[in-house]
Computed example of a mutant assay.
Amino acid sequence: MKSNDLNRIKLETLQDIGASKDGLQKEKNNRHTLRLANIPFDDHTSYLLKVTALLEVCVLALDGQGDFHSKMLSHHDLDTSVKMVLEVVIEMMPHDDMFKLKKLLTVLEEDIDNRYYPEKLKELIINSNHEKEKDIEKAK
């Protein structure tokens, strides 16, 4: 294999690694440049397991059964570490996914009285029920 071909393959490999969305990614805001951490999960089960594990670590640390801070950050106390992890857990919670799940369940269960039920669909169902009642009355 020629060295040019090998270098081209190496460059393509490096570009693929650099284009990966895992790890820290820069995101520019109006004033600041933030770094967003992308963590890969296999499915919702592994996602919830990792969030639960973080919460369990906080419980153990608060019970005094675990030493939670690293030696590099020895000037921080245990409560600060626990607060930081709890903030991360709160940010990781799938609030939007849970809201979507509630909406899906209300539509599938046809729970018209639920506040998450879509208004347009509710109107269509009510109108179709009225038309069915009129058809039944005409048939009598």
Rank of each mutant, 00 (worst) to 15 (best):
M1Q: 09
K2Y: 05
K2N: 10
S3D: 04
N4A: 10
D5K: 02
D5P: 00
N7T: 06
N7L: 10
R8F: 05
I9H: 03
K10N: 08
L11A: 14
L11S: 13
E12C: 05
E12F: 02
T13V: 06
Q15P: 00
D16P: 00
I17D: 14
G18S: 15
A19L: 14
A19E: 15
S20K: 08
K21M: 12
L24D: 14
K26G: 14
K26F: 07
N29K: 09
N30G: 13
N30E: 10
N30K: 15
H32L: 02
H32I: 01
T33P: 03
L34R: 02
R35V: 06
L36F: 02
A37C: 10
I39A: 11
I39E: 10
I39S: 08
F41K: 07
D42L: 07
T45L: 06
T45G: 05
S46Y: 09
Y47D: 02
Y47N: 00
Y47T: 02
L48H: 00
L48I: 01
L49G: 07
K50V: 04
V51H: 02
T52S: 04
A53D: 10
A53T: 04
L55A: 11
E56V: 04
E56G: 04
V57M: 08
V59I: 13
V59D: 15
L60E: 01
G64Y: 13
G66S: 09
D67N: 15
D67E: 13
F68P: 00
F68Y: 08
F68V: 05
F68D: 00
F68R: 05
F68A: 06
F68Q: 03
F68G: 02
H69F: 07
M72E: 12
M72C: 13
L73T: 11
L73S: 15
S74C: 11
H75V: 09
H76M: 15
D77W: 05
D79K: 12
S81M: 14
S81N: 10
V82P: 00
K83G: 14
M84I: 04
V85C: 03
L86P: 00
P94I: 01
P94D: 03
H95E: 07
H95I: 10
M98E: 15
M98K: 07
F99G: 08
F99Y: 12
K100E: 10
K100T: 04
L101W: 12
L101H: 14
K102A: 12
K102D: 14
L104Q: 09
L104M: 15
T106Y: 00
L108V: 06
I112E: 05
D113H: 12
D113I: 08
R115A: 15
R115D: 15
Y116R: 06
Y117T: 02
Y117K: 05
P118V: 01
P118T: 11
P118F: 03
E119A: 06
E119C: 11
E119R: 10
K122C: 00
E123L: 15
S128N: 07
S128M: 11
S128L: 05
K132D: 04
K132M: 10
D135T: 09
D135M: 14
D135H: 13
K138T: 03
A139F: 08
K140F: 13
